[in-house]
Design a protein around this nucleic acid. Structure first.
Length: 857
RNA sequence: GCCCGAGUGGCGGAAUGGUAGACGCAGCGGAUUCAAAAUCCGCCGGUAGCAAUACCGUGGGGGUUCGAGUCCCCCCUCGGGCACCA
C-alpha cells in the first residue's frame, strides 16, 4: 500500500477490535467505571449526519476514557415505538413491526462501518417485548405506589377520521389527512404524578454542575414555581350550585385594578351556562374548535363572551365585575379562572380594549414624567417584580415599594381580612401517558364490570401487541381487533376488556439508560449492575430534548429509586450533559414554472462554481437558501454512506468534529470533507516516511519534544472540555510542526506515535494503522493515554504587547518572571511609548504580569 | 404569544475582561511537471499609502472599564422548545 486507503484500513482494524472484544463492557470492581451515552436514535430508516456527529462526539469520550483506564460502558439501542411506523404502514399497506425492524437492520449496517466503540451485545429496541414487558411491570409497581392515576384530559379530535391527533398532525387547526376542523375533546387518560416532584425536580437542578445553564434555566421555567394568592369572587345570582369563582393570581397587588373575571370554556360554571343558554353553547363550541397546543392557544385571536353574570369585588361589595368566558384560559392551569387587570397585563389590556372594559392602574413608575398610563392609551405597565414602583391603589405598606414587597403586602392584607390565602403553585402538569395508538407499549390493565380498573398480573406480562392488525381505516387498531381486548379479569376471573391505550413513547426513553446496565435481566434492572454502572457519566444529545425527555427521565429515575430499582445516587441519572448542535446544509431551490412552488434539489444534483450553484442536468442556476437543519422534505441531506464510500469513516468523523464547536450547528460542506480527507492522507504519508527513518539524534530534537508535550497538554484539555474543534486545530498545528521538524528519527518516531494516540479517539482506524507502522505495542485502542511533562510546558520568556490608550502599539519580550517595576522601566524606554508620551509622564501604567501592558497618556 | 440560545473575514470558526481573526476551506502567487493530478512553499478583514504606518472593523444603538467579541440595558435577525414529532 503506497497511499492512504481508508477502505482497506478501516475493515482491517474493525475486525481486529471485534476479535479483541475491545468494546465489551465488563463490570470490573477494581477499575473506575465510565458510562457514556448518546441519546438513542429513532429508527427512521437511514442514519444522517446528525447521528454521525452525535455518536462521533460520544465515541471520542468513550475511547479517551478507555485509554485513561476506565471500564467504559458505551451502549446503543433504538427508540423504536412511535407514529412514523404507523404512518408508513398506512402509506404502504405494511406493518409497523416489519418497517421498524427492517429500518433497525439498515441503520445498524450504516452505523457499523463508522467504527464506533459501541458494545453491541447490549443492544435492544424499545419495541422488543422483553423491553416493554419490563416497562409494563414497572408501570404496575408505580400504580401500586399511587404514582399513576386516571383523570379526564383534552385531546385533539378529528371529527371526520374519528381519531385522536398528535399536535403535529394538526395543521392550521385542521386534521392533516381529513382537512376537517379539529375539536378539543375530553377523554379519561392515564397520568404520572410528576407534579408531586415539582419542588424536588426544581431544587435538584442546583446540584447538576455539569449540565448547561441554559438547560437548567429552561427546566426551571418549565416547572414554573410561583407564589400568589388564591381567593374567591362571590357570584351574584349564579346558577344553581354556583356561588363563587375561585381564582389564582401571582399579582395580588393589582387586585384593585381588576376589571373583569375570565373563565375557561371548560370551567364548571361555563359548562352550566352552556346548558342553559344557546349563545353560550355556540361560543364554547367555537372555542373548542382549536387544537390543544399552548402555542396555538397563545397565538390565536383572544375571544371573550360576556356571560351576563357578575361577581363582587372582595374589598368593595358595591363593585361588580363582569364574568367573561374566554378562549385563552385553559382549564388545566390553576383554577381555570382569572381576574383581568388590563393596566398591568398586555393580554388583559388587549382584551379590555376589545370589549370596552375599564382600565385602572394600581401603580405607576417612580419617575412618572414620561409615563403614558394605560388608561390614557399607553401600553400595559408590567415592570419586573424586584423594581420599585409607586402604588396608587395599593394595600398596606409604603407608597413606593418593589413589586415583590407590594405582592407580599397584598397577600398579608388579604389573609388578615379573610380573603384568600398565599399559596405556592407550579406550572408543571402531570404527565399524560395515554395514547390512542397501536405502535406503543400496551398499558397493562383490565377493565372489569364488577371490579373496575384492575392491574394485570405480573406473571401475564408482557402483554404483547397483536400482529394481525391493519391500518386501512383511521383509528386505533387495538380497539377494533376482533379478540385482543377480550380477557379475564385478573381479580374475579369474569370476562373483561383490556385497556387499548398504549404508552407515550417518552415513557420508553425515560429509563432505557438504566436498562443498558443489564439489558437481559428478567426484572427492569439488576441492582448489582445498576449500582456499578449508574450514573450516566456523560450524556450527549440534541438541545431539542432540553425539557421533556430530560425532565421525564429525571422523574422516572426518582420513581424507579422509590420502587427499589435504582440506587439513591441515580435519582439524578445524568451526571453531565452535553447538548450538541444540528448538522445543517444549504438548500438548493428552483421554482416550478406552472405554479411558482419551490422545487428542492439534492446536493449531488448541483455543481458549485464561484459561490453559485447550477443544475448538473441542464446548467440552470439554482437559488442557494441559507443553511437549515438537514431535512428530507428539503432534500438537503447528505448521506453519510456516500461520504464513507468515497473518503472513509475517519474522514467523516474528523470532519464532523472539526471546524464547529460541538454545541453549535455545523454546516456540511463538500469542500470541508475533502480537506479532512487530504489531511488524513498527509498524516498517513508523514507517518510512513517517519517509520522508515533510522534512529538517531537531530538538531531539532528538543524543540520537537517540547511541541509534543504541548500537543499532549492542549489536545487532552480540548477533549476534557468538549472543545474537539480546538483539539483538532492543535493536531493540525502539531502535524505541521512534525512535518517541518529537523529532529532525528528517534524523536520524530516518538512524536508520531503520540500523534497517532492523540488522534485515536477521532480517527481510530488511521491511528491504529500509524501505530502499527511505527512499531507500537498492541492496539492503540485502550493503550494508556500519553501524559504531558509539565516541565516541558514552561516557557522562559514571554512577549508582552504594549497598548497605548488601549490600542496595541508595540511589544517587548522579557523573562517570564521579570519583576513588575523592571517591566515598567522597559516599557517606558520603548520607542513607541516615548513617542506617545512626548516627554511627559503617563497618567497611568497598567501591567498585567505575563499578559499585557497598557499605558494611559 | 411565552421560555432558552446564537450572530466575528468570501466561508466554517479561534480568543480565563488583556495583541480580534488561531486552525481549516476557498482565492491569489510560486516550486515541481512535457502537461495535468497529487504534493510542497508563500500571501490572504476593509480603506488609504511605494512603504513605514494610520484609520475603520466582532448584527444595530447606548453604557461600565485603563482596556469589551467577552459584562450591563434596549433593539433586529436566525434557531430550539411550548406538554400527543422524536
Amino acid at each position: 500500500m503506497s497511499r492512504y486507503d481508508a477502505s482497506v484500513i478501516e475493515q482491517k482494524w474493525q475486525a481486529a477490535w471485534n476479535e479483541a472484544g475491545s468494546f465489551t463492557a465488563t463490570r470490573d470492581e477494581s477499575k473506575p467505571k465510565y458510562y457514556v451515552l448518546e441519546m438513542f436514535p429513532y429508527p427512521s430508516g437511514r442514519i444522517h449526519m446528525g447521528h454521525v456527529r452525535n455518536y462521533s462526539l460520544g465515541d471520542v469520550i468513550a475511547r479517551y476514557k478507555s485509554s485513561c483506564g476506565f471500564s467504559v460502558l458505551h451502549p446503543m439501542g433504538w427508540d423504536a415505538f412511535g407514529m412514523p411506523a404507523e404512518n408508513a404502514a398506512m402509506a404502504s399497506n405494511g406493518h409497523p413491526k416489519d418497517w421498524t425492524y427492517t429500518n433497525i437492520e439498515t441503520m445498524k449496517d450504516q452505523l457499523r462501518p463508522l467504527g464506533f466503540s459501541i458494545d453491541w451485545t447490549r443492544e435492544f429496541a424499545t419495541c422488543d417485548p422483553e423491553y416493554y414487558g419490563q416497562q409494563q411491570s414497572m408501570f404496575l409497581d408505580f400504580l401500586e405506589k399511587g404514582m399513576v392515576y386516571r383523570k379526564a384530559a383534552t385531546v385533539n379530535w378529528d371529527p371526520v377520521d374519528m381519531t385522536v391527533l398528535a399536535n403535529e398532525q394538526v395543521i392550521d387547526g385542521k386534521g392533516w389527512r381529513s382537512g376537517a376542523a379539529v375539536e378539543r375533546r375530553e377523554l379519561t387518560q392515564w397520568f404520572f404524578n410528576i407534579s408531586d416532584y415539582s419542588e424536588d425536580l426544581l431544587n435538584a437542578l442546583d446540584g447538576l454542575d455539569d449540565w448547561p445553564d441554559k438547560v437548567k434555566s429552561m427546566q426551571r421555567n418549565w416547572i414554573g414555581k410561583s407564589t400568589g394568592l388564591q381567593f374567591a369572587f362571590s357570584l351574584v345570582d349564579g346558577p344553581h350550585g354556583h356561588d363563587r369563582v375561585d381564582v389564582y393570581t401571582t399579582r395580588p397587588d393589582t387586585l384593585m385594578g381588576a376589571s373583569f373575571v375570565g373563565i375557561s370554556p371548560d370551567h364548571p360554571l361555563a359548562r352550566q351556562l352552556e346548558r342553559e343558554n344557546e349563545d353560550v353553547a355556540a361560543f364554547c363550541a367555537k372555542c373548542r374548535q382549536m387544537g390543544t397546543s399552548e402555542e396555538e392557544l397563545e397565538t390565536a385571536e383572544k375571544l371573550g363572551f360576556d356571560s351576563g353574570l357578575t361577581v363582587l369585588h372582595p374589598f368593595d361589595t358595591a363593585w361588580e365585575l363582569p364574568v367573561y368566558i374566554a378562549n385563552f384560559i385553559l382549564m388545566d392551569y390553576g383554577t381555570g379562572a382569572i381576574f383581568g387587570c388590563p393596566a398591568h397585563d398586555a393580554r388583559d389590556l388587549e382584551f379590555a380594549r376589545k370589549y370596552d372594559l375599564p382600565v385602572n392602574s394600581t401603580f405607576e413608575p417612580v419617575e412618572a414624567e414620561d409615563h403614558v398610563a394605560p388608561e390614557n392609551g399607553g401600553e400595559a405597565y408590567v415592570p419586573p417584580k424586584p423594581q420599585p414602583v409607586r402604588y396608587i391603589r395599593g394595600f398596606a405598606g409604603d407608597e413606593i415599594q418593589t413589586g415583590d414587597a407590594g405582592i407580599a403586602s397584598a397577600v398579608a392584607f388579604c389573609e388578615t381580612n379573610g380573603v384568600g390565602q398565599g399559596i405556592t403553585k407550579y406550572r408543571l402538569r402531570d404527565w399524560g401517558l395515554s395514547r390512542q395508538r397501536y405502535w406503543g407499549c400496551p398499558i397493562p390493565v383490565v377493565h372489569c364490570e364488577d371490579c373496575g380498573v384492575v392491574p394485570e398480573k405480573k406473571e401475564n406480562l408482557p402483554i404483547r401487541l397483536p400482529d394481525d392488525v391493519t391500518f386501512d381505516v383511521p383509528g386505533n387498531p387495538l380497539d377494533r381487533h376482533p379478540s385482543w381486548r377480550n380477557c379475564d379479569c385478573p381479580r374475579c376471573g369474569k370476562p373483561a376488556r383490556r385497556e387499548t391505550d398504549t404508552m407515550d413513547t417518552f415513557v420508553d426513553s425515560s429509563w432505557y439508560f438504566a436498562r443498558f446496565t443489564a439489558p437481559r435481566a428478567d426484572t427492569p434492572t439488576d441492582r448489582a449492575e445498576a449500582d456499578y454502572w449508574m450514573n450516566v457519566d456523560q450524556y450527549i444529545g440534541g438541545i431539542e430534548h432540553a425539557i421533556l425527555h430530560l425532565l421525564y427521565s429525571r422523574f422516572f429515575a426518582r420513581a424507579m429509586n422509590e420502587c427499589g430499582m435504582l440506587p439513591d445516587k441515580a435519582r439524578e441519572p445524568f451526571d453531565a450533559l452535553f447538548t450538541q448542535g444540528m448538522v445543517t446544509h444549504a438548500i438548493y431551490q428552483t421554482t416550478r414554472e406552472q405554479d411558482g412552488r419551490p422545487v428542492y434539489h439534492y446536493p449531488e444534483e448541483v455543481d458549485l462554481k464561484d459561490g453559485k450553484a447550477f443544475l448538473k442536468e441542464d446548467g440552470r442556476e439554482v437559488q442557494i437558501v441559507p443553511s437549515a437543519k438537514m431535512s428530507k422534505s428539503k432534500n438537503n441531506v447528505v448521506d453519510p454512506l456516500a461520504i464513507i464510500e468515497s473518503y472513509g469513516a475517519d474522514t467523516a468523523r474528523w470532519f464532523v468534529l472539526s471546524d464547529s464547536p460541538p454545541e453549535r450547528d455545523v454546516e456540511w460542506t463538500a469542500s470541508g470533507a475533502d480537506a479532512a480527507f487530504k489531511h488524513l492522507g498527509r498524516v498517513w504519508r508523514l507517518t510512513s516516511e517517519i517509520a522508515a527513518l533510522d534512529d538517531g539524534a537531530g538538531k531539532g530534537d528538543a524543540d520537537l519534544t517540547r511541541a509534543m508535550h504541548r500537543a499532549i497538554h492542549d489536545v487532552t484539555m480540548g477533549i476534557e472540555s468538549f472543545g474537539f474543534n480546538a483539539a483538532i486545530a492543535k493536531l493540525y498545528a502539531f502535524t505541521n510542526t512534525l512535518a517541518k521538524s529537523d529532529a532525528g528519527g528517534a524523536a520524530k518516531r516518538a512524536a508520531a506515535k503520540v500523534l497517532a494516540q492523540l488522534m485515536s479517539p477521532m480517527t481510530p482506524h488511521l491511528s491504529e494503522e500509524c501505530w502499527q507502522m511505527l512499531g507500537g505495542e498492541g492496539l492503540v485502542t485502550g493503550h494508556p493515554w500519553p501524559k504531558a511533562d509539565e516541565a516541558m510546558l514552561v516557557e522562559d520568556t514571554v512577549t508582552l504587547p504594549i497598548q497605548i490608550n488601549g490600542k496595541r502599539r508595540s511589544e517587548i519580550t522579557v523573562a517570564k518572571d521579570l519583576p513588575k517595576d523592571a517591566v515598567e522601566k522597559l516599557v517606558l524606554d520603548d520607542a513607541a511609548v516615548q513617542k506617545a508620551l512626548d516627554g511627559g509622564a503617563p497618567k497611568k501604567l497598567i501591567v498585567v504580569p505575563g499578559r499585557i501592558v497598557n499605558v494611559v497618556v
